[in-house]
Design a protein around this nucleic acid. Structure first.
Lengths: 229, 229
DNA sequence: CATATCATAATTGTCGACAATATAGTGATA
DNA sequence: TATCACTATATTGTCGACAATTATGATATG
């Protein structure tokens, strides 16, 4: 609860901020479909704002890699290709391994207890409804570990860039894997390693966890087995 | 030479683009000192442009982590702390290890030959003038490997973010290490591994190379031995 | 009929002015 | 004297209009 207060010190948000958030959600959830062109006048009209703050929001979306802009031409929503997805997984394999290692070194007992609680909560959710865990819960866990690393630059990289792309992929490809039970077990192993402050082990387990996930995804993509349960 | 043409298809640069580049250089080279406040009217005046494109440039600088912006308050040039520097080194250790691995898998023979040529050139430069190699040459080498990974997202992350921060650190702390000869040897080992397409080895060597560099930097920072040769 | 050229329309980039917010300085009060 | 409140100033955020560039479609020509 202390955290909750610290995380939102003061929210002096500008129009560009709120619009950027809304657009992030809209793109991730596919409301603005992948590959579609973005018209500045149209969007500005829709939000009832001027083009100035909208352009600033677009700048940030470009930094998030959610849109691509060409000078004097315009912006398009990014389309996630298979190759790009693999690239992101490889990066996660590498970076989240580091995050787990630093989390094992830097997380406080309180942090770890909260992580445990999250795991417990996920177990409940899985019994009731796998889909939530698959879409957002898994992300919650991974993000928690990133934050636990206390590596501010690492946290930044995920918050501004990778986080949205991963969510985008989940919505866009929207396939349900049989790995959920297995992934949950692996999450438990990672937390154990962190609790023992075994950085090396945590790194190894996290890297392998994501690698397995990647291989699973590659297989599903190859077999065109999206949405097949 | 094919590459050279492909890399610069057409340069339809906007004002925001060029100003952003100039500001990047100015900040990295310390012309705009670390921690200094950025006044939008003043800067716009200096460049002879309006505040519109300047703000867009500032948005990108924020994405590069070269400045920090607070709503309704303004922008300040980032000041690189010791902790932040260590964070970046840890990230490089992780990411450039991955880059080396993928470079070993994906670099063509032509790419590798060019890498060899670069190494050769560096050897000449070291004999004449260590300082260039220290400041930019080393960066050239590392960036070349990143590009060699053919991992577009990885390349993006470095081009937009880490690259500038690393250069900033070099200028800001501006210390000369005795590791130059050793580092050069390690570069050679890495290229060898890449030539043999031994991804695992390349990854190991690159990670260790950066780790050594980090430890060296930490030691120098602890001893307050900046500028001491 | 296909291609090239040119004029038109639409979109993006840029500018200057106004509104909203934060900072600095002054004066009043405990 | 220190602290608080308030005013004045300066800076940032937002807007609407204009300029520059690109995309579109019609027309002419081989």
């Amino acid at each position: 609860m202390t955290e909750a207060l610290e995380n939102e010190p003061v929210i002096a948000s500008t129009i560009a901020d709120t619009v950027c958030s809304k657009l992030q959600s809209a793109i991730v959830e596919g409301i603005i479909p992948a590959g579609s062109k973005i018209s500045e006048p149209a969007l500005a009209n829709e939000f009832g704002i001027s083009r100035g703050p909208l352009r600033e929001a677009l700048s940030r979306l470009e930094a998030c890699n959610l849109i691509e802009r060409k000078p004097n031409v315009g912006a398009r929503v990014v389309t996630l290709t298979r190759q790009h997805l693999v690239e992101i997984y490889l990066i996660r394999e590498s970076l989240e391994g580091l995050a787990a290692r630093q989390a094992a070194e830097n997380m406080s007992d309180k942090d770890i207890n909260e992580l445990d609680a999250l795991l417990e909560k996920h177990q409940q959710q899985i019994k009731q409804d796998q889909s939530y865990y698959q879409k957002e819960g898994d992300m919650d866990f991974h993000f928690r570990i990133i934050k636990g690393s206390k590596n501010s630059h690492l946290i930044d990289m995920f918050s501004n860039d990778l986080y949205h792309l991963i969510r985008l992929y989940r919505y866009q490809f929207g396939m349900v894997s049989k790995r959920v039970p297995r992934a949950f077990v692996e999450h438990g192993q990672i937390v154990d390693a962190i609790r023992q402050h075994d950085g090396e082990l945590a790194q190894f387990l996290m890297s392998r966890h994501i690698r397995s996930s990647r291989i699973n995804v590659e297989k599903m993509l190859d077999e065109h087995l999206a949405i097949t349960d």
